[in-house]
Simulated assay, not measured.
Amino acid sequence: MLKILLISGFTGMLAFAGCKDKPAAKDTTGPASSKTTEATAPAAPDSAKHIVFFGNSLTAGYGLDPSEAFPAVIQEKIDSLKLPYKVVNAGLSGETTAGGKGRIDWLLQQPLDVFVLELGGNDGLRGIPVSETGKNLQDIIDRVKAKYPQAKILLAGMQVPPNMGSKYAGEFRAVFRSLADKNKLPLVPFLLEGVGGIPELNQPDGIHPTARGHKIVAENVWEMLKVML
Rank of each mutant, 00 (worst) to 15 (best):
M1Y: 12
I4W: 08
I7E: 15
G9L: 08
G9T: 04
F10H: 07
F10G: 01
T11W: 12
L14C: 08
A15L: 00
A17C: 14
K20Q: 13
K22Y: 15
P23T: 11
K26M: 13
K26S: 12
D27P: 12
D27Q: 11
D27M: 07
T28H: 14
G30P: 07
A32F: 13
A32E: 13
S33A: 12
K35V: 14
K35H: 13
T36D: 04
T40A: 13
A41Q: 15
D46W: 00
S47W: 01
K49Q: 12
F54V: 09
T59E: 00
G61S: 07
Y62Q: 15
Y62V: 14
S67E: 08
S67L: 02
A69Y: 04
A72I: 11
A72Y: 05
A72T: 10
I74C: 11
K77P: 08
S80D: 13
L81P: 00
P84W: 02
K86L: 05
K86P: 06
N89Q: 01
N89A: 02
S93Q: 06
G94V: 07
T96S: 15
G100H: 02
G102L: 08
I104F: 07
I104W: 02
D105P: 00
L107C: 12
L107M: 02
L108T: 10
Q109D: 11
P111K: 14
P111Q: 11
L112H: 02
V116S: 09
L117V: 10
G120Y: 03
G121K: 03
G121Y: 05
N122C: 05
D123P: 10
R126E: 09
I128K: 01
S131A: 15
E132L: 05
T133S: 13
K135H: 07
L137M: 14
L137A: 05
D139R: 01
D139Q: 10
I141L: 10
R143C: 08
K145T: 06
A146P: 03
A146S: 10
K147R: 13
K147E: 12
K147V: 13
I153V: 09
I153F: 03
I153R: 02
I153C: 02
P161V: 07
P162M: 05
A169Q: 14
E171R: 05
F172P: 08
F172N: 00
F176D: 04
F176R: 06
F176L: 08
R177S: 15
S178E: 14
L179E: 10
A180Y: 07
G194L: 08
V195R: 03
I198G: 06
P199H: 02
P199D: 12
L201C: 07
N202Y: 03
Q203H: 06
G206C: 06
G206Y: 01
P209S: 01
R212Q: 15
G213K: 10
G213E: 08
H214V: 03
V217S: 00
E219T: 07
K226M: 12
V227Y: 04
V227D: 09
